[in-house]
């Protein structure tokens, strides 16, 4: 089983600790993970803003960078969803525009091997108890693309429930979007912030010390609102909780 980490551009540039946590976690579980340096960005910001053609080189890049791996692990629900849901569309549209089947073939190679982190842990490795220890109160926000496009379902919670010392606090209106939405956050800042303010309110009302998701981009928005409002609730990616142990707390 050859496993590669697709760290995502957001994690690479802004949240390297999350990538490090995935490596630590997978190695602890006996998985040797590679980081093919040819990887970059899945193209979601461009694609979702309407720049489909600008996304195409990144589809090729992704498929080539990970060509030698059986499993591609992605610590982001929305980037994994971008590959699985939209790469086939990009390929099909290019073919329909008379530009051949190379993009579609690239998508075909990438899609079945792409796993969001919790899918890889629960479905491929078959574990929910990863031996983690995190002695804090945590509330979990299911981010939209993981929830609705990938259908992650109970996987993230199942993993959190096995973490020793962790106390899970319920989040009101948990399945409602936080308002990030990529370029939506700056194209419709008022609505985005109003949605985020409600999310932040529910997070604070949960009484948890940390808010956890499988997407750092959403956490960047939620965390940015929380800290601007003077809240001490800490945004934390699920991988960092799962990487934490009694011997070496994250």
């Amino acid at each position: 089983m050859r496993v590669a980490l697709f760290v995502t551009c957001v994690n690479d540039a802004l949240y390297p600790r999350t990538g490090q946590a995935v490596v630590t976690l997978l190695e602890r579980l006996g998985v040797r993970v590679d980081f093919p340096e040819a990887q970059s960005c899945c193209g979601q910001p461009q694609f979702n803003t309407g720049y489909r053609h600008a996304t195409e080189p990144l589809v090729h890049r992704y498929a080539s960078a990970f060509a030698d791996y059986d499993h591609i692990v992605v610590p982001s629900g929305s980037c994994a969803a971008m590959v699985r849901e939209n790469y086939p569309r990009i390929g099909a549209r290019a073919a329909a525009e008379g530009r051949g089947g190379r993009l579609a073939a690239a998508a075909d190679r990438a899609v079945p091997r792409t796993y969001e982190l919790t899918e890889f842990l629960v479905d491929v490795l078959g574990v929910t108890d990863v031996g983690a220890y995190y002695p804090h109160t945590v509330t979990y926000h299911p981010t939209c693309h993981g929830l609705r496009v990938l259908g992650l379902g109970r996987r993230p919670r199942a993993l959190l429930e096995e973490v020793k010392g962790l106390e899970l606090r319920e989040l009101a209106s948990a399945e409602e979007c936080c308002g990030f939405g990529g370029t939506f956050a700056v194209k419709n800042p008022a609505v985005s912030s109003a949605m985020g303010a409600d999310k932040a309110h529910h997070i604070r009302s949960s009484g948890a010390a940390s808010v956890c998701t499988v997407d750092n981009s959403c956490l960047m928005h939620i965390g940015g609102l929380l800290s601007r409002a003077g809240s001490r609730v800490r945004p934390v990616h699920l991988a960092e909780i799962l990487a934490s142990t009694e011997e070496s707390p994250w």
Binding site: D12, L14, Y15, P16, R17, F35, S193
Partner: peptide, 18 residues
């Protein structure tokens, strides 16, 4: 401004993942 009117900017780390 559309971001920072309501939200803090994330802190850029000293070292990228790569």
């Amino acid at each position: 401004r559309a971001w920072t009117d309501t939200r803090e900017v994330p802190q850029v780390p000293a070292e990228s993942f790569r």
